[in-house]
Amino acid sequence: EKIKSDFFELLSNHHLDSQSRWSKVKDKVESDPRYKAVDSSSMREDLFKQYIEKIAKNLDSE
């Protein structure tokens, strides 16, 4: 859970929106230790998708 929250924090530093693509974001964040803390690339992508869904819901509710 800490790894997930750290990863979300990392993503939040990059001002993403619901149109952001993992392939582009990954290049910007892959040197960060919070990125490396997530064991697998599929898990990183899953967390990215969860984060994008979360910010999309937040935008819808505003």
Rank of each mutant, 00 (worst) to 15 (best):
R44S: 04
F7E: 01
K49A: 10
S12D: 13
K2L: 04
E30S: 14
S18L: 09
D32R: 00
R44G: 04
L10Q: 00
D39P: 13
R44I: 02
N13K: 12
F7H: 01
K24I: 15
A56V: 09
K26H: 05
Q50H: 05
E53L: 08
E1V: 05
S23E: 14
E62G: 13
D6R: 03
K54T: 12
F7A: 00
P33H: 07
Y51E: 02
S20E: 07
S23A: 10
S40L: 04
H15G: 15
I55G: 10
S31R: 12
S18P: 12
S12P: 00
E45D: 04
V38A: 04
D27R: 11
Q50N: 04
K26P: 01
V25K: 02
E1W: 05
K28N: 10
N58Y: 05
S40V: 04
S42V: 12
K57A: 11
Q19R: 10
D17F: 03
K24P: 04
K28L: 15
N13H: 15
N58S: 12
F48G: 03
D39W: 06
K26G: 03
K4E: 06
S41E: 15
K24A: 15
K28Q: 09
D60T: 08
L47N: 01
E45Q: 08
W22I: 01
F7T: 01
S5I: 11
E45K: 07
S18D: 14
Y51A: 03
V25A: 05
S5F: 12
K4V: 06
V25T: 06
Y35C: 09
K4T: 10
L47I: 03
S12C: 06
E62A: 14
L59Q: 12
I55D: 09
E9W: 03
A56R: 11
N13M: 14
L59P: 13
I52D: 04
W22A: 01
D17S: 08
A56I: 09
H14S: 07
L10I: 03
R44M: 02
I3C: 00
H14Y: 15
S18T: 07
E62I: 08
Y35W: 05
K2I: 09
E9M: 05
I52R: 07
K54R: 12
W22V: 01
F7M: 01
W22M: 03
H15Q: 14
S20Y: 03
S23M: 11
S20T: 06
F48Y: 09
Q50R: 07
D39Q: 14
F7W: 01
E9A: 09
D60E: 09
E53R: 11
E9V: 04
Y35R: 00
N58A: 06
L47D: 02
K26C: 05
K2C: 03
N58V: 10
H15D: 13
R21T: 15
D17I: 02
F48H: 03
E62T: 14
W22G: 02
H15M: 08
S42Q: 11
L16K: 02
S12Y: 04
D46C: 11
S20C: 08
R44P: 05
S23L: 08
K4A: 07
I52E: 04
S42A: 14
K2T: 06
S31H: 15
H14D: 03
L59F: 15
S61H: 09
F7I: 01
S42P: 10
I55K: 13
K26W: 04
E1I: 08
R21H: 09
S5A: 14
A37V: 04
D39T: 15
D60L: 06
S12E: 13
V25D: 02
I52T: 08
R44W: 01
E62S: 14
Q19A: 10
I55R: 10
S61Y: 14
L59W: 08
E45L: 06
R44N: 00
S31N: 12
E1S: 05
R34H: 00
M43S: 06
S41K: 10
L16Q: 02
P33N: 05
R34M: 01
D27A: 15
R21E: 12
S40F: 02
R44T: 03
S23W: 11
L16I: 15
E9L: 06
D46I: 13
E45W: 02
S18Q: 07
Q19T: 15
E53I: 06
E53H: 06
Q19H: 15
W22H: 01
M43E: 11
L59N: 15
F48C: 04
V29D: 01
S40W: 00
E45C: 05
E53G: 08
H14T: 07
N13I: 10
A56E: 14
Y35A: 09
E1A: 07
M43A: 14
Y35Q: 01
I3N: 06
S23I: 13
F7L: 00
S42G: 10
S40R: 05
V25N: 04
H15K: 15
W22F: 05
K36S: 07
L59G: 14
F7G: 01
I52N: 04
Y51T: 02
S42L: 11
D6W: 01
L11M: 05
Y35P: 01
E45V: 06
K28W: 11
A37Y: 03
R34G: 01
S5Q: 14
N58K: 13
S61E: 11
L16R: 01
D17R: 02
L47K: 01
K2V: 04
S41G: 11
L16G: 01
K57L: 09
E62F: 09
D27W: 12
Y51D: 04
D32I: 00
N58D: 15
A37N: 06
R44F: 01
I52Q: 09
L11W: 00
L47F: 12
F8T: 03
E1M: 04
K36W: 08
K24M: 12
A56K: 14
K4F: 08
S31Y: 06
K49Y: 10
L59Y: 14
Y51I: 00
E62N: 09
A37Q: 07
D6T: 02
H14C: 07
S5G: 10
E62Q: 15
A37G: 03
K57N: 13
V29A: 04
W22K: 02
M43L: 11
K54C: 13
L10T: 01
K2D: 07
E53N: 10
Q19F: 11
Q19E: 14
K28C: 12
N58P: 14
F8M: 06
D32L: 00
E30R: 13
K2S: 09
Y51R: 02
Y51L: 01
L11Q: 00
S18F: 08
S41F: 06
S20D: 07
E53A: 13
S23F: 11
K54Y: 08
D17P: 02
S12V: 03
D6G: 06
S18R: 11
D17Y: 03
E53Y: 10
H15E: 11
